[in-house]
Design a protein around this nucleic acid. Structure first.
Length: 505
RNA sequence: GGUGACGUGACCGAGUGGCUAGGUAGAGGUCUGCAAAACCUCCUACGGCGGUUCGAAUCCGCCCGUCACCUCCA
C-alpha cells in the first residue's frame, strides 16, 4: 500500500498527510498573474507546479476545482497613496484602455500556459469582475471593527486585528512589534493610514485614475477601486467557500500578500485561515539572483522559446522548460543557465523516446515466459512504488522523474535484450508501462513535441520518388505515391519537375 | 537589524543516521558498413572546524559563504 499524498504546509511549517475538507472534492486556489506586462519564466513556475498538483489529485481520484485568478485591477506600483495601478500606468503610457492592456497580456499568458502544458483552471476569475464581492467583504470587516474609512478609502487595521488575538503574521512568522520597528518611518504619501502595517482594502480614485467603480465608502460616496490583497480573499471565498483545501503561490507572495489574505478572511463574518494548506513554490534565479521585474534580470517566456536572451544563446521548447521546472522540487530555488537547460532538453527527449519504446515491449512469437518471474517482478514493482512514493512526498517531481528514468532503463534493457523481457510477468510489465505513461503524460503533463519539419520530410520523399522514377522502379514509384495519398498529398509530375499538392478529393 | 531558506561530484539536482538517487558532460566496452540510440562498466560528492553516536552528507554547536522576504514581484 502506497503512502498517501503529504504536503508541506507553510502555515504549520511541516509536512502532513493531505486530507480534503470535503472528500472527494478538493478546492485549489492559485494566485494568478497581474496582466500588465509579459510574464517571465519565474511566473511560469507556480502554474506548472500547481498544474501537476491538480493533475495528480485528479489521478488520485479527487474531484478538483482549480481556481486561478487574473489580477486586472488594484495592483499598485507601490504602497504610497499616489502609487499608481500597474495596468493603468501601462495603459496611460501606451494610450490604451486599461482593459485592452489586461486583455492583451491575459491572452499572451493563456497562450504560454497552453504550450507549457498547463490545463486551464476550472474558474479564472478577474478582480474587476468581482467588485461587488469585494465591497461585501470590506463591509464585513468594517462591521467587525478591523478596518476604518478615511476620505473614501478603507484600510485594514492591523494593530486592532492583532490586538484581538487573531495573530497577524502567523503565516510568515512575523511579529507585529518587530515589523513596526523595522518598517520605514517613511510614511510619505501614507498619511491616511494609522499604522504603516495597515493595508488598503479600498482606495478612493483620484481624478486621473482610469479604473473606478462606485463606492459606498466615505462621507460623500464616490468612486474607487479595490486593494490588491482583497481580490484573492473575495474570489476564493466565492468559488471555493470560506474555507477550502489548498492555496498556492510564490514564496515572495507569502508576505505581505498571503498574510493579508488570511487577515482579511479572519476578519470576516466567518473567520477562517482561508485554506487548510498553504503552499509556496520557490523562486527562479539568474546568476544566483532572484529574477524579478524590478531588478530587470528577468527572462521572459518568449525569450526562452525564441532564444533571444543574452544569458541564453539558444531557444528552448516549452516542454523542455516544463521538464526543467519539474526536475527540481518546487520548494527549492532553481538557477537558470544554458547548461542546465541543455541537460533538461536531453532528459526530456529521452523520456519522450521512452514513451515510444513502450509499444515494442512485446514478447516475440514462440518465446516462453520464464516459469519464475517473481524476482524480476519485485524489482520492477519496487521502482514503480518508489516513483509514486517520491511524488507523494510533497509532490517531489524530482524524485518521480528519477524513478521514471529508472523504469526507462529497465524498458530499454528489455528491448536491447528480449530474453530479459521473458523474465518479468505480463502483469508486472503492464503495471510498469502504465505507470510510466500515466506519470509522464497525465501527471507531469509532458507530451511529445514534434520536431520534424513535415515539409522537409516531404521533399526528402519526393527526392526518392524522382530517383525511383529515373531508375524506372515503378513498383517503388507507386508505393511512394500511394503512401503520400494516404496523407492527403498528391504528387504532380510537371515539366518543371516534381511538385506536390494537397489532394482535392 | 528581524524572519526564513540554503551550501552535495565537471554542471544541474534528489536524499535526513548505516542501504545505487536521477539527468547532463567525460572515459572504457557491447552492438555496428559508418553513425546514432540503447545497454554494461567507470568517474562517486556532501562548505570549514568541533561535538553526539558503534556509525553522520543526514543530529547539535560555532564559523565561513550564498540567497530570499521585511517595499511592487511567481
Amino acid at each position: 500500500m502506497l503512502p498517501s499524498l503529504s504536503l508541506y504546509n507553510t502555515l504549520t511549517r511541516r509536512k502532513a498527510t493531505f486530507e480534503p475538507l470535503h472528500a472527494p472534492f478538493v478546492g485549489v486556489y492559485l494566485c494568478g498573474p497581474t496582466v500588465y506586462s509579459e510574464a517571465h519564466v519565474g511566473n511560469a513556475r507556480g502554474p506548472v507546479v500547481f498544474d501537476v498538483l491538480t493533475r495528480y489529485l485528479r489521478h488520485l481520484g479527487y474531484t478538483v476545482r482549480y481556481v486561478r485568478n487574473i489580477t486586472d485591477v488594484g495592483h499598485l506600483e507601490n504602497d504610497a497613496d499616489e502609487g499608481e495601478d500597474k495596468i493603468s500606468r501601462r495603459a496611460r503610457a501606451q494610450k490604451l484602455e486599461p482593459m485592452q492592456v489586461a486583455e492583451q497580456y491575459a491572452n499572451l499568458y493563456h497562450r504560454h500556459m497552453e504550450v507549457l502544458g498547463c490545463l486551464p483552471p476550472d474558474i479564472e476569475p478577474r478582480a474587476s469582475g468581482h467588485i461587488t464581492e469585494q465591497i461585501q467583504m470590506i463591509q464585513e470587516i468594517l462591521a467587525n471593527g478591523f478596518a476604518y474609512e478615511v476620505n473614501g478609502s478603507v484600510y485594514f487595521d492591523v494593530p486592532a486585528y492583532n490586538a484581538a488575538g487573531r495573530g497577524y503574521g502567523k503565516l510568515s512568522n512575523r511579529v507585529v512589534e518587530e515589523l513596526l520597528a523595522g518598517s520605514r518611518d517613511n510614511l510619505a504619501g501614507q498619511q491616511e493610514k494609522r499604522s504603516p502595517l495597515d493595508f488598503a482594502l479600498w482606495k478612493r480614485a483620484d481624478e486621473r485614475h482610469l479604473m473606478r467603480w462606485p463606492s459606498p465608502f466615505g462621507e460623500a460616496p464616490g468612486e474607487g477601486f479595490p486593494g490588491w490583497h482583497l481580490e484573492c480573499s473575495a474570489m476564493s471565498r466565492k468559488y471555493l467557500g470560506a474555507e477550502f483545501d489548498i492555496h498556492g503561490g510564490g514564496l515572495d507572495l507569502m508576505f505581505p500578500h498571503h498574510e493579508c489574505e488570511i487577515a482579511q478572511s479572519q476578519a470576516c463574518a466567518h473567520p477562517t485561515n482561508e485554506a487548510q494548506v498553504w503552499m509556496h513554490n520557490n523562486m527562479i534565479t539568474v546568476n544566483g539572483a532572484k529574477m524579478s521585474k524590478s531588478l530587470g534580470n528577468f527572462i521572459t517566456i518568449t525569450d526562452l522559446f525564441e532564444g533571444r536572451n543574452p544569458t541564453l544563446p539558444q531557444a528552448y521548447s516549452p516542454m523542455t522548460v516544463r521538464f526543467f521546472l519539474l526536475q527540481a522540487h518546487y520548494r527549492s530555488t532553481i538557477d537558470i543557465t544554458d547548461e542546465a537547460l541543455q541537460a533538461a532538453r536531453k532528459g526530456y527527449r529521452k523520456l519522450m523516446n521512452g514513451l515510444r519504446q513502450l509499444e515494442k515491449l512485446t514478447l516475440p512469437e514462440g518465446t516462453e515466459r520464464a516459469p519464475d518471474t517473481e524476482k524480476a517482478d519485485a524489482e520492477l514493482r519496487k521502482i514503480v512504488t518508489d516513483t509514486f512514493i517520491g511524488l507523494n512526498d510533497d509532490l517531489n517531481t524530482a524524485r518521480a522523474i528519477a524513478g521514471l528514468f529508472n523504469l526507462l532503463r529497465k524498458f530499454n534493457g528489455y528491448t536491447a535484450n528480449l530474453a530479459t523481457l521473458a523474465q518479468v510477468s505480463e502483469a508486472a510489465l503492464n503495471e510498469a508501462t502504465t505507470a510510466y505513461r500515466t506519470l509522464v503524460i497525465d501527471v507531469l503533463g509532458l507530451v511529445d513535441e514534434p520536431r520534424a519539419n513535415a515539409e522537409q520530410l516531404l521533399n526528402l520523399t519526393l527526392n526518392f520518388y524522382s530517383e525511383a522514377k529515373a531508375a524506372k522502379a515503378y513498383d517503388k514509384v507507386d508505393e511512394i505515391r500511394a503512401a503520400l495519398k494516404g496523407q492527403g498529398i498528391v504528387i504532380k509530375d510537371t515539366k518543371a519537375g516534381v511538385e506536390w499538392a494537397y489532394s482535392e478529393e
